[in-house]
């Protein structure tokens, strides 16, 4: 606590913001170019994309390194700590809204657009004139839409791998909470074990999810192109998987920081932020398990 509590913390000047803006621009410009490239001409776009992604990784590394240094130097008073907490909470709220858009699309497709195409409600004329032989049903092939886009497919059974993954994520929530309690009590060995377990559980989850995707593509013919069913299935679970990946990486970083002794009993915002994020990812999965797999 180098500063007095009643003075505002004024951060030192930093180049990271403009660096971040530049690398983000390079990344998306490369990605857009790549998406539009003719076959055989992808080189420029994909290279630009790779340079951008590498730049983003470097930027995150550098920016977080300076934040960690400031934190270790004790520059952050309790007011800054509260600001960080609020920032993280509102960030998670924005993520909730992002998933909300995709859940909204799922509910809309299941409750409205697919039944309407099958002739329910005010969709009766569309049904009669365009696709009079289409029988609306969710999953199986009904979700493939009237034109059977993506061909026949089967859905992933909820009570196999997805159930296992649910249990894995729920267990990881427990282990991270144990680690948090250990942190508050100051048992570093216990923290490292349980936080390490959490990282491993996250990685296992990702392994099983990859396995599930491969099986869906190879054996069930369930692909991203399988009509609105495939779209919602892969976009929801895919974005969730990306968040688990990010969460696992963050947990691993936190594990390293714990091993180096960066956190103290009452000064460990970085740990809590990642823990919150992990719980958020867990809750999203419960929603997915419920509405994508079971129902």
């Amino acid at each position: 606590m180098g500063h007095q509590q009643d003075a505002y913390f004024v951060p030192s000047k930093s180049y990271w913001p403009i660096v971040a803006a530049v690398v983000m621009f390079v990344t998306v410009f490369g990605a857009a170019h790549w998406l539009n490239a003719q076959p055989g001409e992808e080189f420029f776009g994909s290279t630009t994309l790779k340079i951008g992604v590498a730049g983003i990784l470097l930027m995150f590394f550098g920016w977080f390194r300076s934040v960690i240094r400031e934190s270790l130097a004790g520059s952050y008073n309790s007011q800054v700590d509260r600001s960080f907490r609020m920032g993280m909470m509102w960030f998670i709220f924005s993520e909730v809204m992002f998933f909300g858009a995709f859940f909204g699309a799922l509910f809309y497709a299941r409750m409205y657009s697919v039944p309407w195409l099958g002739g329910e409600g005010h969709g009766v004329l569309t049904h009669q004139f365009l696709w009079s032989d289409y029988a609306a049903a969710w999953g199986a092939n009904g979700g493939g839409g009237p034109d059977r886009i993506g061909g026949s497919f089967q859905t992933v059974a909820a009570w196999g791998l997805p159930l296992l993954n649910t249990l894995i994520l729920l267990t990881s929530s427990v282990t991270i909470t144990i680690a948090h309690h250990a942190l508050k009590a100051g048992h570093r060995g216990k923290i490292l074990v349980f936080l390490g377990l959490t990282v491993l559980l996250g990685a296992t989850f990702l392994y099983f999810q990859a396995h599930e995707y491969i099986e869906a593509y190879r054996q069930l013919n369930l692909t991203l192109q399988s009509g609105v069913y495939g779209s919602t299935f892969f976009m929801l679970t895919g974005f969730h998987g990306m968040h688990v990946t990010l969460g696992t990486i963050m947990l691993a970083v936190i594990w390293l920081r714990c091993a180096k002794g960066h956190f103290s009993k009452d000064h460990h915002f970085g740990f809590e932020a990642v823990a919150w994020y992990w719980h958020f990812v867990d809750v999203v999965w419960l929603g997915l398990f419920m509405f994508v797999y079971i129902l």
Partner: peptide, 14 residues
């Protein structure tokens, strides 16, 4: 770009 059907009625979207 990736062939999803969120907004394509032929694929069950809208």
């Amino acid at each position: 770009y990736f062939g999803t059907s969120f907004f394509n009625a032929a694929g069950g979207g809208d």
